[in-house]
Amino acid sequence: MNEPDRKKTSHKPLLTLNSIAKAFGGVQALWNISFDLKEGMVQALIGPNGAGKTTLFNLITGIFTPDSGEILFDGRPIGGKKVYDLVQVGIARTFQNVELFGSMTALENVMVGQHVRTRCGFWSAVTRTPWMVKEETASRKKALKIMAFVGIDHLANRRSSELSFGWQRLLEIARALSSSPRLLLLDEPAAGLNTVETRQLGTLLKKIQAQGITLLLVEHDMGLIMDISNRIVVLDQGEKIAEGTPREVQSNEAVMSAYLGRSEH
């Protein structure tokens, strides 16, 4: 949060996908996907249900490994790296179906997000060394600050499973932000939100972008996408069918027929 000087002026790609492919059994979930994501951008990933968007997220975050192709983060290949290494280098995500730690408080949820940025192990937890106490206090403070940034600091001590769905979505974003990511992947952040909440989400995402964090989001809400994204990539049945600025994509024939024409959105 404290690195506002990474402006979106630097236009080198933060994430590069080179002909990624992934199949599950007989289902070719992704085929030959390539695109760049420039640092500081908000890029949207759209496509009808089952297009492979979530699968792509799972590949970028290291949950699955691609069958072929390579993924570069900040110029370095990240294929085969463990999930926790990728969080360490600065990739954070939220889930399509909110996955919070239900028995923990909102604050604790956000603190878990800092797991890779803190060091306290078994031994220091038990002995409560001074640096561990200091780290814990700092971590708590940072978590509260992020919650305030997202607008949910008043919920800090509520159990996360008791929160309303809209708050839960925001809490997930706060949790992801607290790992100090450079790239934030959001899987349908507006799903289940009402129009007011969606508008507020748009403002929040712009604020996040202004912090210098690059965003890749999967979304079905076209209003939100047109409002905040710099670029759009369109997937259909596992293949990339279009890419460009919102305006370009909007007028793209293939997209019209494959996506907009066929789905109810």
């Binding site: 975050t61 949950i63 999930v83 926790y84 990728l86 969080v87 360490q88 995500r93 889930f95 996955e99 919070l100 730690f101 239900g102 028995s103 923990m104 604790e108 878990v112 997000g113 797991h115 890779v116 949790r175 790992s179």
Partner: peptide
């Protein structure tokens, strides 16, 4: 506790 509540999410948080 995070592992208990959701192992997937815990892993995605870098645990």
């Amino acid at each position: 506790r995070a592992i208990h509540d959701s192992e997937n999410a815990a892993r995605a948080m870098g645990i």
